[in-house]
Design a protein around this nucleic acid. Structure first.
Ligand SMILES: [Mn+2]
Ligand SMILES: [Mn+2]
Ligand SMILES: [Zn+2]
Ligand SMILES: [Zn+2]
Lengths: 143, 143
DNA sequence: TTGAGAATGAGATTTATTCTCAGAATTAAC
DNA sequence: GTTAATTCTGAGAATAAATCTCATTCTCAA
Protein backbone atom coordinates (compact mmCIF):
# COMPACT_ATOMS: atom_id res chain seq x y z
CA UNK A 1 0.00 0.00 0.00
CA UNK A 2 1.79 3.13 -1.18
CA UNK A 3 0.77 6.65 -0.39
CA UNK A 4 -0.34 7.58 -3.83
CA UNK A 5 -3.28 9.21 -2.07
CA UNK A 6 -0.95 11.56 -0.28
CA UNK A 7 1.00 12.33 -3.43
CA UNK A 8 -2.17 13.08 -5.33
CA UNK A 9 -3.63 15.23 -2.59
CA UNK A 10 -0.42 17.20 -2.33
CA UNK A 11 -0.43 17.77 -6.05
CA UNK A 12 -4.05 18.89 -6.11
CA UNK A 13 -3.58 21.30 -3.23
CA UNK A 14 -0.48 22.74 -4.85
CA UNK A 15 -2.57 23.53 -7.92
CA UNK A 16 -5.57 24.83 -6.04
CA UNK A 17 -7.63 21.83 -7.11
CA UNK A 18 -10.03 19.87 -5.01
CA UNK A 19 -9.89 16.29 -3.78
CA UNK A 20 -13.31 15.11 -4.83
CA UNK A 21 -15.04 11.78 -4.45
CA UNK A 22 -14.73 10.81 -8.14
CA UNK A 23 -11.05 11.63 -8.12
CA UNK A 24 -10.50 9.42 -5.07
CA UNK A 25 -12.38 6.57 -6.68
CA UNK A 26 -10.41 6.87 -9.90
CA UNK A 27 -7.09 7.03 -8.09
CA UNK A 28 -7.87 4.02 -5.96
CA UNK A 29 -9.08 1.97 -8.87
CA UNK A 30 -6.00 2.83 -10.89
CA UNK A 31 -3.80 1.65 -8.05
CA UNK A 32 -5.87 -1.40 -7.21
CA UNK A 33 -3.89 -3.34 -9.83
CA UNK A 34 -0.46 -2.99 -11.37
CA UNK A 35 -1.41 -3.61 -14.98
CA UNK A 36 -1.36 -1.34 -17.97
CA UNK A 37 -4.84 0.05 -18.52
CA UNK A 38 -6.91 2.09 -20.90
CA UNK A 39 -9.87 4.32 -20.23
CA UNK A 40 -12.48 1.75 -21.19
CA UNK A 41 -11.05 -0.90 -18.90
CA UNK A 42 -10.75 1.60 -16.09
CA UNK A 43 -14.30 2.78 -16.67
CA UNK A 44 -15.69 -0.76 -16.53
CA UNK A 45 -13.71 -1.52 -13.40
CA UNK A 46 -14.95 1.59 -11.67
CA UNK A 47 -18.53 1.03 -12.76
CA UNK A 48 -18.69 -2.28 -10.95
CA UNK A 49 -18.83 -0.40 -7.69
CA UNK A 50 -19.63 3.18 -8.52
CA UNK A 51 -22.40 3.87 -10.98
CA UNK A 52 -21.90 7.59 -10.74
CA UNK A 53 -18.45 8.22 -12.16
CA UNK A 54 -18.50 9.38 -15.75
CA UNK A 55 -16.12 8.80 -18.61
CA UNK A 56 -15.63 12.54 -18.85
CA UNK A 57 -14.27 12.70 -15.33
CA UNK A 58 -11.93 9.79 -15.98
CA UNK A 59 -10.60 11.55 -19.07
CA UNK A 60 -10.22 14.70 -17.01
CA UNK A 61 -8.49 12.99 -14.10
CA UNK A 62 -5.88 11.03 -16.03
CA UNK A 63 -3.84 14.11 -16.98
CA UNK A 64 -3.83 15.08 -13.32
CA UNK A 65 -2.44 11.69 -12.32
CA UNK A 66 0.20 12.08 -15.00
CA UNK A 67 1.12 15.56 -13.87
CA UNK A 68 1.29 14.34 -10.28
CA UNK A 69 3.89 11.79 -11.36
CA UNK A 70 1.73 8.79 -10.49
CA UNK A 71 1.18 7.33 -13.93
CA UNK A 72 2.45 7.82 -17.44
CA UNK A 73 1.18 7.29 -20.91
CA UNK A 74 2.57 3.99 -22.01
CA UNK A 75 1.74 2.11 -25.20
CA UNK A 76 -0.96 2.71 -27.74
CA UNK A 77 -2.84 -0.45 -28.71
CA UNK A 78 -5.92 -0.89 -30.87
CA UNK A 79 -6.17 2.87 -31.35
CA UNK A 80 -6.40 3.44 -27.60
CA UNK A 81 -3.98 5.19 -25.30
CA UNK A 82 -2.74 2.98 -22.49
CA UNK A 83 -1.29 4.02 -19.17
CA UNK A 84 0.82 2.47 -16.45
CA UNK A 85 2.06 3.30 -12.98
CA UNK A 86 5.22 5.26 -12.49
CA UNK A 87 4.72 5.68 -8.76
CA UNK A 88 5.79 2.48 -7.05
CA UNK A 89 7.11 0.88 -10.21
CA UNK A 90 10.62 0.69 -11.53
CA UNK A 91 11.23 2.05 -14.99
CA UNK A 92 11.31 -0.62 -17.64
CA UNK A 93 11.18 -1.16 -21.36
CA UNK A 94 8.63 -3.11 -23.37
CA UNK A 95 9.09 -5.96 -25.81
CA UNK A 96 5.79 -6.27 -27.66
CA UNK A 97 4.81 -9.31 -29.69
CA UNK A 98 3.23 -8.31 -32.98
CA UNK A 99 1.36 -11.60 -33.23
CA UNK A 100 -0.26 -12.12 -29.85
CA UNK A 101 0.15 -8.73 -28.20
CA UNK A 102 2.13 -10.10 -25.28
CA UNK A 103 4.18 -7.49 -23.46
CA UNK A 104 7.47 -8.38 -21.81
CA UNK A 105 8.75 -5.84 -19.31
CA UNK A 106 12.49 -5.58 -18.77
CA UNK A 107 14.50 -3.28 -16.55
CA UNK A 108 17.67 -1.82 -18.02
CA UNK A 109 19.67 0.86 -16.29
CA UNK A 110 22.20 0.35 -19.04
CA UNK A 111 20.05 1.73 -21.84
CA UNK A 112 19.04 4.64 -19.66
CA UNK A 113 22.64 5.48 -18.96
CA UNK A 114 23.47 5.53 -22.64
CA UNK A 115 20.45 7.66 -23.44
CA UNK A 116 21.44 10.06 -20.69
CA UNK A 117 24.91 10.31 -22.15
CA UNK A 118 23.55 10.99 -25.62
CA UNK A 119 21.11 13.55 -24.27
CA UNK A 120 23.90 15.35 -22.46
CA UNK A 121 25.84 15.61 -25.69
CA UNK A 122 22.84 17.34 -27.27
CA UNK A 123 22.11 19.55 -24.26
CA UNK A 124 18.81 17.78 -23.87
CA UNK A 125 17.23 17.29 -20.47
CA UNK A 126 15.44 13.96 -20.33
CA UNK A 127 12.22 13.88 -18.33
CA UNK A 128 10.96 10.50 -19.40
CA UNK A 129 12.27 7.47 -21.22
CA UNK A 130 10.35 5.61 -23.81
CA UNK A 131 12.17 2.47 -24.84
CA UNK A 132 10.96 -0.66 -26.51
CA UNK A 133 10.84 -2.93 -29.49
CA UNK A 134 8.30 -4.82 -31.52
CA UNK A 135 8.82 -8.36 -32.71
CA UNK A 136 7.84 -11.96 -32.20
CA UNK A 137 7.68 -13.72 -28.86
CA UNK A 138 8.89 -17.16 -27.99
CA UNK A 139 5.55 -18.93 -28.28
CA UNK A 140 4.50 -17.27 -31.51
CA UNK A 141 7.80 -18.14 -33.18
CA UNK A 142 7.37 -21.82 -32.31
CA UNK A 143 3.87 -22.14 -33.70
CA UNK B 1 17.59 8.82 -55.77
CA UNK B 2 17.01 5.40 -54.28
CA UNK B 3 15.05 2.63 -55.87
CA UNK B 4 12.12 2.73 -53.54
CA UNK B 5 10.03 2.40 -56.71
CA UNK B 6 11.60 -0.96 -57.43
CA UNK B 7 11.21 -2.12 -53.86
CA UNK B 8 7.57 -1.13 -53.82
CA UNK B 9 6.81 -2.71 -57.16
CA UNK B 10 8.48 -5.93 -56.08
CA UNK B 11 6.42 -5.97 -52.93
CA UNK B 12 3.17 -5.33 -54.77
CA UNK B 13 3.83 -8.03 -57.34
CA UNK B 14 4.75 -10.50 -54.61
CA UNK B 15 1.36 -9.88 -53.04
CA UNK B 16 -0.61 -9.93 -56.29
CA UNK B 17 -1.31 -6.21 -55.97
CA UNK B 18 -1.22 -3.62 -58.72
CA UNK B 19 1.12 -0.70 -59.27
CA UNK B 20 -1.45 2.01 -59.88
CA UNK B 21 -1.08 5.68 -60.66
CA UNK B 22 -2.20 6.88 -57.20
CA UNK B 23 0.22 4.49 -55.51
CA UNK B 24 3.09 5.82 -57.62
CA UNK B 25 2.17 9.39 -56.76
CA UNK B 26 1.94 8.63 -53.06
CA UNK B 27 5.25 6.77 -53.04
CA UNK B 28 7.04 9.54 -54.88
CA UNK B 29 5.64 12.26 -52.68
CA UNK B 30 6.58 10.34 -49.56
CA UNK B 31 10.15 10.05 -50.81
CA UNK B 32 10.37 13.60 -52.15
CA UNK B 33 11.48 14.73 -48.69
CA UNK B 34 13.14 13.06 -45.74
CA UNK B 35 10.98 14.48 -42.98
CA UNK B 36 8.53 12.83 -40.66
CA UNK B 37 5.03 13.23 -42.03
CA UNK B 38 1.41 12.65 -41.20
CA UNK B 39 -1.51 11.92 -43.51
CA UNK B 40 -2.76 15.49 -43.63
CA UNK B 41 0.60 16.91 -44.60
CA UNK B 42 1.06 14.23 -47.20
CA UNK B 43 -2.41 14.85 -48.57
CA UNK B 44 -1.80 18.59 -48.90
CA UNK B 45 1.54 17.99 -50.57
CA UNK B 46 0.05 15.56 -53.06
CA UNK B 47 -2.91 17.79 -53.77
CA UNK B 48 -0.67 20.61 -55.00
CA UNK B 49 -0.04 18.59 -58.15
CA UNK B 50 -2.65 15.87 -58.23
CA UNK B 51 -6.24 16.82 -57.51
CA UNK B 52 -7.43 13.28 -57.97
CA UNK B 53 -5.79 11.35 -55.16
CA UNK B 54 -8.07 10.75 -52.22
CA UNK B 55 -7.39 10.56 -48.52
CA UNK B 56 -8.84 7.05 -48.54
CA UNK B 57 -6.18 5.87 -50.95
CA UNK B 58 -3.44 7.48 -48.88
CA UNK B 59 -4.72 5.72 -45.80
CA UNK B 60 -4.86 2.51 -47.79
CA UNK B 61 -1.38 2.86 -49.25
CA UNK B 62 0.52 3.67 -46.08
CA UNK B 63 0.21 0.15 -44.66
CA UNK B 64 1.55 -1.16 -47.95
CA UNK B 65 4.60 1.09 -47.71
CA UNK B 66 5.11 -0.11 -44.16
CA UNK B 67 4.78 -3.76 -45.15
CA UNK B 68 7.20 -3.19 -48.02
CA UNK B 69 9.76 -1.98 -45.50
CA UNK B 70 9.91 1.54 -46.92
CA UNK B 71 8.49 3.51 -44.02
CA UNK B 72 7.52 2.92 -40.42
CA UNK B 73 5.13 4.40 -37.95
CA UNK B 74 7.14 6.83 -35.91
CA UNK B 75 5.79 9.24 -33.33
CA UNK B 76 2.26 10.24 -32.50
CA UNK B 77 1.81 13.99 -32.15
CA UNK B 78 -1.36 16.03 -31.70
CA UNK B 79 -3.47 12.87 -31.93
CA UNK B 80 -2.06 12.08 -35.36
CA UNK B 81 0.09 9.14 -36.40
CA UNK B 82 3.38 10.19 -37.93
CA UNK B 83 5.60 8.19 -40.25
CA UNK B 84 9.19 8.28 -41.40
CA UNK B 85 11.42 6.56 -43.91
CA UNK B 86 13.15 3.35 -43.05
CA UNK B 87 14.39 2.73 -46.57
CA UNK B 88 17.48 4.86 -47.15
CA UNK B 89 17.62 6.07 -43.57
CA UNK B 90 19.71 4.82 -40.70
CA UNK B 91 17.89 3.77 -37.58
CA UNK B 92 17.87 6.42 -34.90
CA UNK B 93 16.22 7.40 -31.67
CA UNK B 94 14.22 10.52 -30.92
CA UNK B 95 14.66 13.13 -28.22
CA UNK B 96 11.45 15.13 -28.18
CA UNK B 97 11.09 18.52 -26.52
CA UNK B 98 7.88 18.75 -24.53
CA UNK B 99 7.84 22.53 -24.82
CA UNK B 100 8.48 23.29 -28.48
CA UNK B 101 8.04 19.91 -30.11
CA UNK B 102 11.56 19.88 -31.52
CA UNK B 103 12.81 16.42 -32.44
CA UNK B 104 16.48 15.52 -32.18
CA UNK B 105 17.49 12.37 -34.04
CA UNK B 106 20.46 10.38 -32.75
CA UNK B 107 21.99 7.16 -33.98
CA UNK B 108 23.00 4.65 -31.36
CA UNK B 109 24.12 1.17 -32.23
CA UNK B 110 24.93 0.80 -28.56
CA UNK B 111 21.34 0.92 -27.33
CA UNK B 112 20.33 -1.46 -30.09
CA UNK B 113 22.98 -3.94 -29.05
CA UNK B 114 21.81 -3.89 -25.48
CA UNK B 115 18.20 -4.32 -26.50
CA UNK B 116 19.19 -7.22 -28.73
CA UNK B 117 20.97 -8.83 -25.81
CA UNK B 118 17.97 -8.39 -23.53
CA UNK B 119 15.64 -9.71 -26.20
CA UNK B 120 17.79 -12.78 -26.66
CA UNK B 121 17.58 -13.50 -22.96
CA UNK B 122 13.78 -13.47 -23.25
CA UNK B 123 13.67 -15.47 -26.48
CA UNK B 124 12.20 -12.46 -28.19
CA UNK B 125 12.85 -11.74 -31.83
CA UNK B 126 13.09 -7.98 -32.41
CA UNK B 127 11.67 -6.69 -35.67
CA UNK B 128 11.73 -3.02 -34.93
CA UNK B 129 13.22 -0.71 -32.34
CA UNK B 130 11.38 2.12 -30.77
CA UNK B 131 13.66 4.19 -28.62
CA UNK B 132 13.36 7.70 -27.38
CA UNK B 133 12.85 10.13 -24.56
CA UNK B 134 10.82 13.21 -23.80
CA UNK B 135 12.23 16.23 -22.07
CA UNK B 136 13.37 19.81 -22.54
CA UNK B 137 15.65 21.01 -25.31
CA UNK B 138 18.53 23.40 -25.06
CA UNK B 139 16.68 26.52 -26.19
CA UNK B 140 13.59 25.91 -24.09
CA UNK B 141 15.67 25.40 -20.96
CA UNK B 142 17.43 28.74 -21.46
CA UNK B 143 14.28 30.77 -21.87
C1' DT C 1 -23.37 28.27 7.15
C1' DT C 2 -22.15 30.38 3.18
C1' DG C 3 -20.27 31.85 -1.14
C1' DA C 4 -16.93 31.68 -4.78
C1' DG C 5 -14.82 28.75 -7.53
C1' DA C 6 -14.02 24.22 -9.01
C1' DA C 7 -15.91 19.83 -10.50
C1' DT C 8 -19.40 16.85 -12.21
C1' DG C 9 -22.50 13.91 -15.48
C1' DA C 10 -24.79 13.69 -19.64
C1' DG C 11 -24.62 14.16 -23.93
C1' DA C 12 -23.10 16.79 -28.02
C1' DT C 13 -19.01 17.55 -30.76
C1' DT C 14 -14.70 16.89 -32.97
C1' DT C 15 -11.75 14.53 -35.90
C1' DA C 16 -8.44 10.80 -37.28
C1' DT C 17 -9.16 6.65 -39.33
C1' DT C 18 -11.87 3.01 -41.44
C1' DC C 19 -15.49 1.29 -44.23
C1' DT C 20 -18.87 0.89 -48.22
C1' DC C 21 -19.95 0.64 -52.81
C1' DA C 22 -20.55 1.61 -57.62
C1' DG C 23 -17.67 2.60 -61.25
C1' DA C 24 -12.75 2.65 -63.22
C1' DA C 25 -8.17 0.88 -63.93
C1' DT C 26 -4.82 -2.98 -64.30
C1' DT C 27 -2.95 -7.09 -65.98
C1' DA C 28 -2.40 -11.43 -68.19
C1' DA C 29 -4.33 -14.26 -71.66
C1' DC C 30 -6.16 -14.59 -75.95
C1' DG D 1 -6.41 -4.80 -79.41
C1' DT D 2 -10.09 -7.29 -76.79
C1' DT D 3 -11.50 -9.55 -72.95
C1' DA D 4 -12.31 -10.93 -68.42
C1' DA D 5 -11.10 -11.56 -63.68
C1' DT D 6 -9.60 -8.99 -60.19
C1' DT D 7 -8.06 -5.19 -57.89
C1' DC D 8 -8.46 -0.14 -57.02
C1' DT D 9 -10.43 4.11 -56.69
C1' DG D 10 -12.94 8.44 -55.00
C1' DA D 11 -16.65 10.11 -52.48
C1' DG D 12 -18.84 10.20 -48.73
C1' DA D 13 -20.81 7.70 -44.78
C1' DA D 14 -19.58 5.50 -40.54
C1' DT D 15 -16.85 4.64 -36.39
C1' DA D 16 -15.04 5.73 -32.11
C1' DA D 17 -11.50 7.89 -28.92
C1' DA D 18 -11.05 12.00 -26.89
C1' DT D 19 -12.67 16.64 -25.92
C1' DC D 20 -15.95 20.09 -24.99
C1' DT D 21 -20.41 22.42 -23.23
C1' DC D 22 -23.30 23.66 -19.83
C1' DA D 23 -26.55 23.50 -16.19
C1' DT D 24 -26.18 21.66 -11.69
C1' DT D 25 -23.62 20.04 -7.65
C1' DC D 26 -19.77 19.81 -4.65
C1' DT D 27 -15.78 21.50 -1.97
C1' DC D 28 -13.56 24.06 1.38
C1' DA D 29 -11.80 28.16 3.56
C1' DA D 30 -13.67 31.66 6.07
MN1 LIG E 1 4.97 -1.51 -18.53
MN1 LIG F 1 13.10 10.18 -37.11
ZN1 LIG G 1 3.42 -13.67 -29.28
ZN1 LIG H 1 12.21 22.93 -27.03
Amino acid sequence: MGNENLVFEKYLVSKGLKLTKPRKIILNTVFATHEHFNVDELYDQIRKKHKDVSRATIYRTIPLLVEAGLIKQSLRCLAKDHYEHTYGHNRHLHLICEKCGKIIEVESKETENILNKLAKKHNFNIKEFNIGAKGICNKCRKK
